[in-house]
Amino acid sequence: MKQSPEMDNLEAVLRSSKLVAGGFLGSDRRSVCEIIEEDRRRLDNAGVGCKELAGRMREITDAAKRQLGGCVKVSDRLEAWVEEAKGVLVCPWPHSGGILKRITTVRNVETGETVTWSDLNIHLIEEHGFFEGKGSAMRLEPGEIVKMIC
């Protein structure tokens, strides 16, 4: 799939470690457009849209952050907690605003399975449909996260 020069520049930023250690694309050799397109198809198959999924993620993060690092029950089978660090992260797409360094972990109390996301993940999914590349430390698998929290 052909990308615009702007997307080429963006991909260079995403592959570098300018903003986060290890970059956003991990070991994934696909182009950004291919990654976004394939993840969008997977999300469609799961019957959920990016904004809807990001909204659910934010709802869980908001509930957990009120516990200041403690655990909160977000449904019969899910509990969640957040960890925060000082400073802000910058979205690799060219627009204004910093995003707090906040990590949310959700655990299924029945299976012990966990999923972790950052506030930047929520923004990237909501605004750019981007779940990060395979092998990236904060990559989210669309089907898995929908199954877990929706």
Partner: peptide, 11 residues
């Protein structure tokens, strides 16, 4: 210093 997941400096 507290480890920040994927944090460049803390890693």
């Amino acid at each position: 210093i507290r480890l920040v997941p994927c944090g460049i400096c803390t890693t």
